[in-house]
């Protein structure tokens, strides 16, 4: 039921003409949908079990509906979200994240904004209490051991990361969560929309590497957690944090361990043994299978 509530939270961001149709779907879809997708000139869809299902074939999404969706997500204050819009996403106060596509406005070689939206992808966040039950005892036996969560995009990395952070925090550890895209904790006006534990300090919107250095200096964490390890500077920051004796919990995009090892960025990371465990997530329809491997 909790997941259906999260779906309905995402549906509230849709324009009125779409809301009723999206809310009136089957219970199965309400509980399992991962994303809602709106594209100008196309019917709205929901991503369910890895596939897109049309929500209303008679409805063609209009540019005005996309603009209204963005307006709802930003509560008519796009100017306060300028930095994240520039990076192609917005996190609504409810913790729901919207990916944006449109015409990029550039200044020099960088994107300074987005105009004339052409599509919006509304990611439905899932707080799945208990999803770390099989993983957590092993990675926290005799003290937390640094862990890398691995899966392809949409595999449930963020959900597992959130749950492990919550369990570590509730278990008495001081966790610093670097939430670059405000997707893990969904902080709005200083309060986290998702339960990330009572001993978790959340740094939202900061680039990961800079965020790691900041929390190391400022928050004396026992564990630093962040989503999506993607850049060489992130690896360097991880190495320095590990040298300070801080545990690390991160996620990485890869189909599996072989895929991870074949990538130069992660190859280096694994060589240096910064992470002790990898949790590989496999999707079986809407179900997830978690495999913990010692690296």
């Amino acid at each position: 039921m909790a997941q259906a509530e999260e779906y309905l939270r995402a549906v509230r961001l849709l324009p009125p003409g779409l809301r009723a149709k999206a809310a009136g779907q089957t219970d199965e879809l309400l509980r399992g949908a991962e994303e809602l997708r709106l594209r100008v000139g196309q019917a709205p869809t929901a991503v369910f079990e890895g596939r897109e299902q049309v929500l209303d074939s008679a409805h063609c999404v209009t540019p005005e509906e996309l603009a209204l969706t963005l307006e709802l997500a930003t509560r008519s204050s796009a100017h306060t979200y300028a930095d994240s819009i520039r990076m192609g996403y917005v996190t609504a106060p409810s913790g729901v994240r919207l990916g944006l596509c449109g015409t990029a406005v550039t200044e020099g070689e960088s994107i300074s904004g987005l105009r004339r939206l052409s599509s919006i992808c509304i990611r439905i966040p899932h707080q799945v209490s208990g999803c770390a039950e099989t993983v957590f005892p092993r990675i926290s036996r005799g003290g937390f051991a640094s862990t890398l969560i691995v899966s392809p995009p949409g595999g449930g990395k963020t959900t597992l990361l959130r749950e492990i952070v919550r369990k570590l925090s509730e278990g008495g550890r001081r966790v610093s969560l670097i939430d670059s895209r405000n997707e893990v904790a969904g902080v709005f006006e200083g309060r986290a929309c998702f339960d990330v534990g009572s001993r978790t300090d959340v740094l939202s919107g900061a680039p990961k590497a800079q965020g790691i250095y900041l929390v190391l200096r400022a928050m004396s964490p026992e564990v630093i957690a962040f989503d999506e390890l993607t850049a060489p500077e992130d690896v360097k920051a991880c190495e320095e944090a590990a040298n300070c004796g801080v545990g690390l919990l991160a996620t990485a995009h890869a189909a599996g361990l072989e895929d991870l090892r074949s990538r130069p960025l992660y190859e280096k990371l694994l060589e240096r043994r910064i992470f002790k465990y990898a949790v590989v997530i496999s999707s079986l329809g809407s179900q997830r299978e978690y495999r913990t491997v010692e690296l």
Partner: peptide, 10 residues
Amino acid sequence: FMGKFSIEEL
């Protein structure tokens, strides 16, 4: 314009 544009544009 309100709520749709950057601070400079507003």
